[in-house]
Design a protein around this nucleic acid. Structure first.
Length: 522
RNA sequence: GGCUCGGUAGCUCAGCUGGUUAGAGCGUGGGAUUCAUAACCCCAAGGUCGGGAGUUCAAGUCUCCCCCGAGCCA
């Protein structure tokens, strides 16, 4: 089985902000989870680089559009590198290969009779790259979103006959699970129920775009071009770009993860385009929520944007991943609160989980020859911690399959809390003060170490580096979640009570998670 | 303006088809403990469930109106 998932292709109008990082991080967790389960994953991200807005932004900086796009998309690429995002592909819509795919796709759509010429007249917002419905006689209308003046356009455009797909789209969005979370479904249903209207897919006199074959002077509308980036991304760099190959390279996608604002494009326009071109449809479109910061919208005007690069620098990957995935229900809007951020990271990761490993490893080493204690009677699968671990594993998997990172994280945390509690109840440090308790202490510590190993294993998709560090302290090999191995899943195999080898040497304990001490606002 | 989603302890949220004293984690206060990253464990305080009206023997949970936030469409 293969699993293809995508982030949106980020628009290179500006450098990356926390929102894109959030989406990408979440996708990374999904990609890692699927790989760990043994799936052949194609994790796609990239940049969307055409359109008038880009052209103007570049001009304003005295750059050619290409130079501007090169710089910004390189910024994205590097950022994802720094975050150790495990994307398999990074696609740019200015790639000549993409041009080829778009043109092939268009020819299919046109051959299917879905392209018509039409006159597009109206007020246009360059920032939205959309025509607005303001009345023609309006004087100096402004875009409600961008607060910028609209421009009057009167041009002959090519239209995609979306209206022909009314029924198919209705059937598609009615499919349970296609639109996720399900709370977003109605919004799209109502939109479709109003009747789908053909939409324009070309612009004239806009040089910064892909030329429409057979229609001189026309370039593709950015959205038409951008969505197709998901297909281009699937093709290998060293093969001729050929649309006919995408099915063999991982299409259709199992999942498009997007921000809730672009749900319409992905759940309505995009499937219709694919139907027209005779390509299979993605299985699921997940629209996640937006992040605010300390209760306020982030924006340049407020001067409160949280830069993903500086966040990384000050806090590290694990901390940020944990906070965003564990505290913000995926799908809902969320608020980034610095105090809470450091509270949760310190409490969950450093204290509850990190310290559990540290204290247990210390005891085992001290009293059992710097090794995992022997278990003479054999490892009992009926041990309360074994039961707890198994349950945590089940909850984790169930949650991850639903993209419920929060609940998945809680499963790990609960296991660690239960294990800490067990340790306190057994109090091996007391038992060891009397002779003859070594066997009891040994089996207690074994169970606690083993449960801790489970925590590390489960944590792998969410906080891969922390997981590796924990496993290393337990003398275990790291779990590779960053690349598809096509091998039987070591991760699933690791979810077996008793996987920790008695007698295995334990390295000297090192804190696996530093506490965050954030004095200044980030 | 229309549609959709949300408004539950200081904070982030659970609360299924209406039914005993509304739950969890964080934060706060107290206790216990020393194996450990002043960590872990236990206990406690804290809510007129956005506001108002209604349906019902019974509503956080259903209906209507209003207020606030977000997204979409205008």
């Amino acid at each position: 089985m293969s699993f293809t998932l995508t982030t949106p292709l980020y628009y290179v109008n500006d450098r990356a902000h926390l929102g894109s990082a959030y989406t990408t991080l979440a996708c990374d967790a999904i990609a890692r989870y699927q790989r760990l389960k043994g799936e052949q994953v194609v994790f796609i991200t990239g940049c969307d680089e055409h359109g008038q807005k880009i052209q103007r932004t570049a001009e304003a900086q005295g750059l050619s559009p290409q130079a501007h796009c090169d710089a910004v998309s390189e910024g994205y690429r590097q950022l994802w590198n720094q975050w150790q995002i495990s994307n398999d592909r990074f696609v740019r819509t200015t790639d000549p290969r993409h041009r080829e795919i778009v043109q092939q796709f268009f020819k299919r759509v046109e051959a299917n009779g879905d392209v018509v010429e039409g006159r597009q007249q109206g007020w246009y917002c360059v920032a939205c790259e959309e025509f607005k419905d303001d009345p023609a006689e309006a004087s100096a209308p402004h875009c409600a979103i961008h607060q910028k003046p609209l421009e009057w356009r009167d041009e002959l455009n090519l239209f995609f006959r979306l209206s022909r797909y009314q029924q198919q789209i209705e059937a598609l969005i009615a499919k349970p699970g296609f639109i996720a979370p399900s709370s977003r479904k109605k919004e799209v249903e109502n939109f479709v129920a109003q009747g789908l209207r053909d939409f324009s897919i070309s612009r004239v006199d806009l040089p910064w775009g892909i030329p429409v074959p057979g229609h001189p002077g026309h370039t593709f509308y950015v959205w038409f071009d951008a969505l197709l980036g998901y297909l281009t991304a699937l093709l290998d760099q060293n093969e001729e770009p050929d649309l006919a190959l995408v099915n063999a390279r991982g299409w259709p996608a199992q999942l498009h993860v997007i921000g809730k604002d672009i749900l319409r494009f992905h759940a309505v326009y995009w499937p219709a385009m694919l139907l027209s071109a005779g390509l299979p449809l993605p299985e699921r479109v997940f629209g996640h929520g937006f992040l605010t910061r300390e209760g306020q919208k982030m924006g340049k005007s407020l001067g409160n944007v949280l830069d993903p690069e500086s966040l990384l620098e000050h806090c590290g990957r694990d901390a940020v991943r944990w906070y965003l995935l564990r505290d913000i229900p995926f799908g809902d809007d969320g608020d980034f609160q610095q105090q809470r951020f450091s509270d949760l990271v310190n409490n969950d990761l450093a204290n509850t989980i990190g310290n559990l490993l540290n204290r247990t490893s210390s005891m085992a080493r001290r009293w059992f020859n710097e090794a995992v204690p022997p278990v003479p009677g054999g490892v009992a699968a009926s041990h309360p911690l074994a039961v707890a671990a198994l349950r945590a594993g089940e909850q984790f998997t169930r949650a991850m399959d639903l993209l419920d990172f929060r609940s998945a994280a809680e499963a790990c945390l609960h296991l660690a809390i239960t294990t800490n509690g067990y340790l306190n109840d057994q109090a091996p440090w007391k038992l060891m003060k009397q002779e003859g308790n070594e066997l009891q202490v040994g089996s207690d510590l074994y169970a606690v170490l083993e449960a801790t190993r489970w925590v590390a294993v489960l944590l792998a998709p969410l906080v891969p580096e922390l997981s590796d560090r924990m496993l290393q302290q337990l003398g275990q090999a790291p779990l590779a979640s960053g690349a598809s191995l096509g091998a039987p899943s070591a991760w699933l195999a690791a979810q077996q009570w008793g996987g920790l080898q008695p007698g295995l040497a334990l390295p000297e304990p090192q804190p696996v998670m530093q506490r965050l001490e954030l004095e200044a606002p980030l």
